[in-house]
């Protein structure tokens, strides 16, 4: 008799739990079915052919092996020297690539940073200004940088200038958006302080906003530099300068060993930049949070 109530509860729990499990299972089955349909539809649309892939894999590994010329133990130094026969030109291209990324980062960050104040709801002043700036920034970053590069190559001809401009436009869009989000998260109290003391809009930005946002700006800029080095290595595929141009021509001309040598230079550079940028972010910014 004393156990009746708990037993009733247990039975209710058991039945409700079973119902819950059933509901979950139905959802999971439905979701799984939709997912499988999506996969099959996508595989058909994208002409994903497993047989072709399996056929191609040996060729892929063959190709990857061709990227490295035979290097003997006894003639190691000579073989490597022969492999990197055009090292002077490649290093020049690499320097160009890095400087392209640097210039695009600086220009894009300054222009994007300037625009970010108009793209922040709390600072823009008028809604129309906010809306227009936001849409412009969106266009700048939604169009991929390599498409910008294709367009700039038409106007500026083949060379690094087109690549720099392309990466700059993309950087303006990305930095403008990220900085605007940082701007929107600041405390309004210092702004009120400057305004109460009779400061102008510029003084508000300089003394109330910038000190709050600078650490995040710097952190995003280092990160953007890293991404722009990657971009600068590929805009050369469409003739917009940098080491990508050398890589593209060597693959097109079937100089596979050259391509391998350049790929190795690129991967070493990217990894080095990653490490440097990370240590910079940690040391220069200290406790600045990456959250936004």
């Amino acid at each position: 008799m004393a156990n009746a109530a708990p037993r009733g509860l247990a039975a209710r729990f058991a039945s409700e739990y079973a119902a819950h499990r059933r509901r979950k299972r139905v959802y999971a089955t439905l979701f799984g079915a939709v997912f499988v349909v999506c996969v099959v539809a996508a595989a058909i649309t994208a002409k994903f052919d497993v047989i072709k892939l399996v056929d191609g894999l040996p060729r892929t590994s063959e190709f990857l092996l061709k990227l490295v010329p035979p290097i003997g133990m006894s003639s190691f130094a000579n073989d490597v020297r022969e492999w990197y026969w055009d090292i002077g030109k490649w290093m020049g291209s690499l320097l160009n690539t890095l400087l392209m990324a640097y210039l695009a980062t600086v220009l894009g960050t300054f222009i994007g940073g300037f625009l970010s104040f108009f793209a922040a709801r709390n600072l823009a002043g008028h809604y129309l200004i906010y809306w227009t700036t936001r849409r412009l920034l969106e266009i700048a970053r939604t169009v991929p940088d390599i498409v910008w590069a294709l367009m700039f190559v038409i106007a500026f001809g083949i060379g690094p200038l087109a690549g720099i401009l392309a990466i700059t436009v993309h950087t303006i869009g990305a930095q403008g958006k990220l900085f605007a989000e940082v701007n929107e998260n600041i405390s309004p109290l210092p702004i009120d302080g400057i305004r109460a003391a009779g400061g102008s809009w510029w003084q508000e930005i300089r003394f109330a906003v910038l000190p709050q946002v600078m650490p995040n700006y710097l952190s995003y800029t280092f990160w953007r530099m890293e991404l722009n080095v990657r971009s600068a290595t590929i805009v050369g595929f469409v003739g917009a300068g940098g080491i990508g141009h050398d890589l593209f021509t060597s693959v097109q001309l079937l100089y596979f060993a050259d391509a391998g040598a350049i790929l190795l230079i690129i991967v070493a550079t990217i990894m080095l930049i990653d490490v440097l940028s990370e240590s910079f972010r940690h040391s220069a910014i200290g406790k600045a949070s990456f959250a936004h």
């Binding site: 994208a46 002409k47 994903f48 052919d49 072709k52 892939l53 191609g56 060729r59 892929t60 063959e62 190709f63 990857l64 390599i146 990657r230 971009s231 290595t233 590929i234 595929f237 890589l247 593209f248 693959v251 790929l263 690129i266 991967v267 990217i270 990894m271 990653d274």
Partner: peptide, 25 residues
């Protein structure tokens, strides 16, 4: 993982186009 990530999509695409031929694969 870092090694795979450090080449851009376009660079891998360039390699796979040589090996698997033109096309979405």
């Amino acid at each position: 993982a870092d090694l795979l990530r450090s080449f851009d999509y376009l660079i891998w695409a360039l390699i796979f186009v040589r090996a698997l031929g033109l096309g979405p694969l």
